[in-house]
Amino acid sequence: GYRKEQERLGIPYDPIQWSTDQVLHWVVWVMKEFSMTDIDLTTLNISGRELCSLNQEDFFQRVPRGEILWSHLELLRKY
């Protein structure tokens, strides 16, 4: 899972600490993992702090059909 990727690349476990690059890395990883092609990366060119401050409605406004990303983010925030 993504935890291995975080360990390998030194990405903080807590998404709130992610840099913009780390947010984009996570988005690309999830897209590959779940064979998603319809995500516009430019809408998530934000820091982890900004990402974690979005509520579900705001998130889906930025990322239509972003349910998998949202669920994955929720999982990461719990651990």
Rank of each mutant, 00 (worst) to 15 (best):
L51H: 01
I11D: 01
I68L: 12
W29M: 02
I46W: 06
D14Q: 05
R8G: 05
W70A: 02
S71H: 13
P64F: 03
S35A: 10
W70N: 02
V28M: 14
T37H: 12
D58E: 10
R49M: 15
V27S: 07
Q56I: 08
K32G: 10
E67N: 10
M31I: 12
F59M: 04
D38K: 10
S47H: 06
I39S: 06
Q61F: 10
F59C: 00
Q56D: 06
L75T: 15
D38A: 08
I46N: 03
R3S: 07
R8D: 07
L44W: 09
Y13I: 13
W26Y: 04
W29D: 03
Q61M: 13
I11T: 02
S47D: 11
P12M: 01
I16P: 04
L24V: 13
L73V: 04
I16S: 14
K78C: 11
R62D: 02
W70R: 04
E33N: 07
E7T: 10
E5F: 04
D38G: 12
R3D: 04
P64H: 08
G48F: 02
R77F: 01
C52M: 11
H72V: 03
P12K: 02
D38Y: 06
L54P: 00
Y79Q: 14
K32E: 13
D38L: 04
E74Q: 11
H72F: 01
V30P: 02
V23N: 00
Q17P: 00
W18K: 01
V30N: 05
R77H: 11
V63Y: 06
I46K: 02
V23W: 00
L69P: 00
G48A: 02
D21Y: 06
N45H: 14
L73E: 02
W26C: 01
L44I: 08
S47F: 01
Q56C: 08
Q56Y: 15
E50M: 06
L73T: 00
L41P: 13
E67R: 09
Q6M: 13
L54S: 03
Y13V: 09
L69M: 09
S35D: 15
F60G: 09
T37C: 12
P15R: 03
L54Q: 04
L76I: 06
I16Y: 15
P64A: 05
D14I: 00
N45E: 12
L24I: 10
D14L: 02
L73Q: 03
T20M: 08
F34T: 11
M31L: 09
L44M: 13
T43F: 05
G48R: 00
S53H: 07
L24G: 09
R49A: 14
V23L: 02
L41K: 10
Q6K: 00
V63L: 11
R8T: 09
E67S: 11
T37E: 15
V28N: 10
V30S: 11
R3P: 04
D38M: 05
W70E: 02
Q61H: 11
N55I: 06
G66H: 03
I46G: 02
F59E: 00
L9F: 15
Y79M: 05
R3F: 11
K32I: 03
G10Y: 05
G10K: 12
R65H: 09
L69N: 00
E50Q: 14
F59S: 03
Q56N: 04
R65G: 14
W70C: 02
V63M: 09
Y13G: 09
H72C: 05
R77K: 14
V30M: 12
E50L: 07
S19Q: 06
K4Q: 09
S71L: 08
I68F: 11
Q22D: 11
E33C: 06
L73R: 02
E5I: 14
W26F: 04
H25T: 09
D38F: 04
P12I: 01
E67T: 12
Y79V: 10
E67I: 07
Q61V: 14
S53D: 15
K78D: 15
R8K: 13
K32P: 02
G10L: 08
D58R: 10
V23D: 01
Q22R: 00
M36D: 13
N55G: 13
W26N: 01
E50S: 05
I16K: 13
Q6N: 01
R49T: 10
H72L: 02
Y79G: 15
L44V: 07
L51A: 00
L9Y: 08
V28G: 13
R65M: 09
N55K: 07
W29G: 02
L9N: 10
E33Y: 06
L54K: 03
D58Q: 13
D40F: 03
I68P: 15
L69K: 00
I39N: 11
E7K: 04
R49G: 09
M36L: 15
T43K: 15
F34S: 11
Q17S: 13
E74V: 07
W18P: 00
S35E: 12
L24N: 11
L44P: 01
S35M: 08
N55H: 09
V30L: 09
M31D: 02
E57K: 09
S35K: 13
F60A: 13
H72M: 05
D58P: 00
Q17V: 09
R62M: 15
L69V: 04
K78L: 08
I16D: 09
E7Q: 11
T42W: 07
S53E: 15
I46S: 00
E7C: 04
C52F: 05
K78T: 13
L9G: 04
L24A: 10
V28H: 13
L75N: 15
L44C: 05
H25I: 08
G1H: 15
R49K: 10
D21M: 08
I39L: 13
P12N: 04
N45I: 06
F34M: 07
G48K: 00
L51V: 03
M36A: 13
T43D: 15
H25M: 05
W70G: 01
D40K: 06
T20D: 09
K4I: 15
L73H: 02
V63K: 01
R77E: 05
P15E: 00
E5M: 05
Q6E: 06
W70H: 04
M31Y: 05
T37N: 13
H72N: 11
Q22K: 02
L51I: 04
Q6C: 09
T20Y: 04
W70T: 00
E7W: 05
L9H: 10
L76D: 01
R77M: 05
G10F: 06
S53W: 04
L51G: 01
L9Q: 15
Q22M: 06
T43R: 13
E5A: 03
L69A: 05
L73F: 07
D21R: 10
L51C: 01
G1M: 15
T20E: 15
T20K: 15
L69T: 00
V30A: 12
F60M: 15
L24E: 10
Q6P: 02
R8I: 06
